[in-house]
């Protein structure tokens, strides 16, 4: 209790957030037991039949389970990496711009795609990626003289397209965090380096990049929680029967299956599965970061 006395301001500062979390996050979590039930709305948690792991079986005993989970992982991991590297790199290059006006202009524009929904962007992408006179394919055929690429109708290209377009949509917005980190760098560090005659490249390597590493680890680790979310809205608006084997992900299949089932227990089960995997990965990388770099992510 002595401890509590000394640290009471700390507890007090956390208390408001804690209350909100308990009410809006932890209390609802009790219903995760639905994942183990054949949940019927009218019967509720107490009345619904317990079916053990049947809801999970549906995910794992489908003929295409492995394929779907693999697709999800491949697309999600590629996206995660791309969405870390792209804003990271972009922030560095943006940091090198000397004219403040250009810097702000570029930064404002790249942040725009984040605000368009995939319903809209999906329609635009189908047009500009069309093999039938789409803008991108016209450039490719004129420049390289090769056959048009069926970006959205070929499995491998589909994955690439999904990752690249997602990166394009989000990198500008993702840059904000890194720019804030750069804003925290003490300018005197650069001044001192300049006095020492360090080239700009060396300054970037030794000052700019290291200052962004911690926040990169944090953002990357937290993104692991979403390892099985490959982006429902995007895939749903872009995929088609030709790319089912490379593009169908857990969320799209849950969506389709839920229409047949109308079952909340099933959706909860899949959600729980994704959460458990995400949590395990977060714990592992938290440990790793602490062991290897002595850095506590949170």
């Amino acid at each position: 209790m002595k401890l509590l006395k000394r640290n009471w301001p700390f507890h007090l500062m956390i208390l408001p957030s804690l209350i909100f979390l308990i009410v809006f996050s932890y209390v609802p979590m009790a219903w995760i037991v639905m994942a183990f039930q054949d949940f019927k709305p009218r019967l509720g948690i107490s009345g619904s039949e317990w079916i053990g792991l049947d809801n999970f079986r549906y995910l794992f005993e489908r003929e295409d389970s492995v394929q779907v989970i693999l697709n999800t992982l491949v697309i999600a991991v590629l996206k995660m990496v791309a969405n870390l590297i792209a804003p990271f790199t972009f922030a560095i290059f943006l940091n090198e711009l000397r004219k403040m006006f250009v810097k702000r202009f570029v930064q404002t524009l790249v942040y725009l795609p984040h605000f368009l929904s995939w319903v809209i962007l999906g329609g635009i992408l189908v047009d500009i990626l069309s093999t039938d006179g789409g803008f991108v394919n016209r450039i490719i055929t004129n420049l390289f003289g090769i056959e048009p690429i069926f970006f959205l109708g070929d499995g491998t290209w589909f994955r690439i397209t999904v990752v690249v377009t997602d990166m394009w949509k989000e990198f500008g917005f993702g840059t904000v965090v890194f720019l804030a980190a750069l804003a925290n760098v003490n300018p005197s560090l650069y001044e001192a380096a300049e006095v020492d005659g360090a080239s700009r490249f060396k300054q970037t390597m030794h000052i700019t990049i290291p200052s962004m590493i911690p926040i990169t680890i944090v953002v990357g680790t937290l993104a692991l929680g979403n390892i099985l979310n490959a982006g429902f809205d995007q895939i749903f608006n872009l995929y088609n029967p030709l790319v089912y084997d490379k593009g169908d992900i857990i969320d799209t299949f849950v969506y389709r299956a839920a229409i047949l089932n109308g079952q909340m227990g099933f959706g909860t089960a899949i959600g729980l599965f994704k959460s458990v995997i995400g949590m395990i990965l977060i714990v592992i990388s938290y440990r790793l970061a602490y062991k290897l770099a002595g850095y506590r992510i949170f």
């Binding site: 932890y26 009790a30 948690i45």
Partner: peptide, 22 residues
């Protein structure tokens, strides 16, 4: 423990509401 406790609490609550309607 926290999770289990809140879980139990919610369960008993829900059973009340539902039996009332049945």
């Amino acid at each position: 423990l926290t999770v289990i406790l809140s879980l139990l609490a919610a369960c008993s609550n829900s059973s009340n509401t539902n039996s009332g309607n049945a």
